[in-house]
């Protein structure tokens, strides 16, 4: 039962990402909820579990988007793996550490999207894209992380240190 719930929950996060959050955009920028969830989980449970979450959330995002299939999955998996590696460097992840990791993960995820865009012939100025898209998105993701990290910490406590199905 729990694996199906996990798939549905990550699907709901992906739906929120494409439907609700863009309505709250400021200056054309909105936060990345699946990325924040995956990074928070990587800090709490490690890379292995987070990469599986990233794979599921990424596939949902790819199904709900129009570009080359797999692009979002690739970005999320890479971000989850890096966040998991980062988590190994600290004894216990704190909120400031979570904010730092989500900043790194946002740069990785957006960097991959921009690389794919560049490969498909899209034009953009890297400094402008960093300044006007990536940095505001990091700020937005900080706010999102402040809500998501305590919530997932609670889920982590409730489920104990036992592995969830699909881990």
């Amino acid at each position: 039962m729990i694996p199906y719930l996990l798939v549905l929950a990550l699907g709901l996060a992906a739906l929120l990402q494409v439907s609700l959050l863009p309505a709250l955009q400021i200056g054309g920028v909105y936060p990345n909820l699946p990325l924040v969830i995956v990074v928070a989980w990587a800090l709490l449970r490690g890379a292995r579990s987070a990469v599986i979450w990233a794979l599921i959330a990424g596939l949902w995002l790819d199904l709900l988007s129009s570009r080359s299939f797999g692009g979002y999955t690739l970005g999320l998996v890479a971000a989850a793996y890096l966040a998991g590696l980062g988590a190994q460097t600290v004894y216990r992840p704190t909120i400031p550490f979570a904010l730092a990791m989500v900043a790194v993960a946002t740069i990785v995820q957006d960097g991959i999207q921009m690389a794919l865009l560049w490969l498909s012939g899209g034009t953009f100025s890297l400094p402008d894209a960093l300044l006007r898209l990536v940095l505001p998105e990091i700020a937005y993701n900080f706010v999102m992380m402040l809500a998501v990290f305590p919530l997932l910490s609670w889920v982590n406590r409730v489920t104990g240190q036992e592995r969830l199905p699909l881990e």
């Binding site: 494409v18 863009p22 920028v29 990345n32 699946p34 709900l64 988007s65 995820q109 999207q113 898209l133």
Partner: peptide, 10 residues
């Protein structure tokens, strides 16, 4: 009803 998951793609 929806946008792209990231604001890099419009």
């Amino acid at each position: 009803v929806a946008n792209e998951p990231t604001s890099i793609i419009q």
